[in-house]
Write a protein that binds this DNA or RNA. Sequence first.
DNA 1: TATGAATGAGCGTTCATTCAT
DNA 2: AATGAATGAACGCTCATTCAT
Lengths: 227, 227, 227, 227
Amino acid sequence: MPRSTARREEILTVAGELFRQKGYHATSMQDIADRLQLQRGSLYAHIDSKEELLFEIVDRAADRFLEGIERAWREGRTARERLRRALAAHMSVIADHRDTASVFFHEWRFLRDDLRRRIQVKRDRYEARWRELVADGVRRGEFRAVDPRFAALLALSAVNWAYQWYSPEGPLSPAEVAEAFADLILQGLEGRGAPATAELAARAGAAASPGSAPPGAAGADDGAGSR
Amino acid sequence: MPRSTARREEILTVAGELFRQKGYHATSMQDIADRLQLQRGSLYAHIDSKEELLFEIVDRAADRFLEGIERAWREGRTARERLRRALAAHMSVIADHRDTASVFFHEWRFLRDDLRRRIQVKRDRYEARWRELVADGVRRGEFRAVDPRFAALLALSAVNWAYQWYSPEGPLSPAEVAEAFADLILQGLEGRGAPATAELAARAGAAASPGSAPPGAAGADDGAGSR
Amino acid sequence: MPRSTARREEILTVAGELFRQKGYHATSMQDIADRLQLQRGSLYAHIDSKEELLFEIVDRAADRFLEGIERAWREGRTARERLRRALAAHMSVIADHRDTASVFFHEWRFLRDDLRRRIQVKRDRYEARWRELVADGVRRGEFRAVDPRFAALLALSAVNWAYQWYSPEGPLSPAEVAEAFADLILQGLEGRGAPATAELAARAGAAASPGSAPPGAAGADDGAGSR
Amino acid sequence: MPRSTARREEILTVAGELFRQKGYHATSMQDIADRLQLQRGSLYAHIDSKEELLFEIVDRAADRFLEGIERAWREGRTARERLRRALAAHMSVIADHRDTASVFFHEWRFLRDDLRRRIQVKRDRYEARWRELVADGVRRGEFRAVDPRFAALLALSAVNWAYQWYSPEGPLSPAEVAEAFADLILQGLEGRGAPATAELAARAGAAASPGSAPPGAAGADDGAGSR
DNA sequence: TATGAATGAGCGTTCATTCAT
DNA sequence: AATGAATGAACGCTCATTCAT
């Protein structure tokens, strides 16, 4: 199989979109072919299997997330700054590669054992980086003596879950969401003075039309109920 | 259809387990029947359709989560206490009804429009309660003037994501997990003094054999790789 | 799967017939279903796979051939008599289970490794019996000091090949064919006196309409060119 | 289409090999192209269809067999000698053009009606020659008054079947196999004195390691179990 | 209640072949 | 001569569901 041709990229893009909207199992090769105005068998001139599509989408997402935290680590000076950058990087991936990221979180478990294991390795490395980042902050005295596991998990949960509700069409940029979370995670609910997100709060509140659910809805995606 | 018989409950239990392990679409009626040593067709003496099973599982989970936060609100006096109770209640549902909760998060989007909307209503109410809880804390002066949307979302994300990694076989009780998160959310990373979770940290660290990955793994569930 | 129901036997019969006529790979489940006025998927209520059909057909044939030679060995007194009986038994299987026998010779190699090996064991045993039969005759002094391998192979080839040309509708009974071969194999071309088949020759010659090809054509089967 | 170019011959050779190993229907144009390091579609610059390949392979084999018996007839003086030569010629074709011969026996029936009929004509002619050869021997008084049909069929069956078990890598040359069969066919099992194959028997016995099974196995070919 | 045979649609994939380049 | 993208049909098989018994 050619690793990368224009047609193949088209297929991957469409597959990513459909996998996110309908789920891997509920998306048929027919669905993908229809969007490209192709016969379903014709896809196999470009790919080996449906599962290959899933793997490639998930693998690319894993690489993007990993790249993000590696760069955050390299480019940040303090633990505080690194955490902010890591949150921002994660949000960026979700914003810029919405389909891919969503499939990464939702559908990776449908990969067969060997492929899933390869993804698991990257997931584990990603999470380990987060824990190191927090542990380093504790060691430096920037953070309280919290359990790095829980603290990393809190930060990660916040941004992991974002694929469920974040929309690039909403009023907030990925950077702004990351900053709001960073503020909360660093300072907590019971703290001194006004949070950095005071102004954001106003904006988000103003823009939130009822039913559109930003942010706070653990919300329904588009497309899911189509079939 | 009889709304509730012993057989029907058996079917729901098995379906919940399989939906969690393999996903809704990858679970066949055959799979369910096999576990109950029944013929495929015999299931339809008790249920109307596969989708009905999914709806009922998801709907029950929604009710449990809602019940939890309502009681937390009623029984807690301070915002701080209510938040702790709400986190604990959520973790309890995840721990006590693991299959149901997992299906609630993962598979609800495969419901057809009308059924999905009914679930959406309950999800929205649940999230609204969380926002009210935070907003109330801000109003009372217990919390900083944070955006309730973001703060509620942070707390909710932490426990929502827990269905991905929490295992009742792990070293931590749901209450302990909830407490750890509460501590972090309330105090933040940069707080004063030792966190309430200092002792927990030791225990979790001691018990966590590499590979078993609690807490911190966004990890793979059992059963997913069955095919 | 139920090992034997009326429907299942019907399917096996039809499959045997079609596999012989068109070959295993050129026969589709659709073809089989059509003959039974069934949907192609409905077959799978009775069988596990197409290959299972092939295996069962081939395995039954193997058993019949084996049974035949075992009985010939038990019931014959002299080597001469045993050889005659073995030839007759083989021809009987071909005559009475034409489809099965034909598939046994032609299609067995399309079984996957493990199933093919199970058949191979029976084939090997069958051929070993033939060699023992001849070797015993040589030992007893009934036969010349021929190589049992070649002699057994000659006899076996004659009757193995019969599935290609023998037709129950032809003028000769399986017993008569077996006798003619037995006479030739035992006495050879250069011998004393008239062969036992002198009368047969007349009959066969009279009945052989040109083109119907009995015996002597390595001939075409019916049905092969249908698709 | 060019009738014969170097490329075309390559294709025919590869097709013959694959058709023998896997069967006509189980061999795809992809398989053939792969071996030649060509694209599927490129084959059609040299041939018209897959069936054309089959026809040409089978037709060439038919010609070779026919040529063999014609020459045996011309070059032999006595019936006995002609029979020996005919057997040897047949074995030579099988040994020297193993793929082609094997496909001739196994796959010719997959030709469509008109092409199959053209092959049938040659097969009929070939068998007729064998019968004439025997009939002539009877007429001359060299052979017993056997039915020429059965006698020809016996000889033909022996060598026809050889494509199933004969291997050029085995201990016996085609000529030796032919001689062994000729001896048996001419003299029969119950003859006078030692057979001409006494020495052969020793050699074959010595060389035949159990499992390799020459001669006597109606055996499995290489390649069949590839999938 | 439960069976088991059947349906009819759909699945992912392979196929021989075509054709513009 | 050869490529590579595409076709359209067919493949073996699975699915949720129905229904007479």
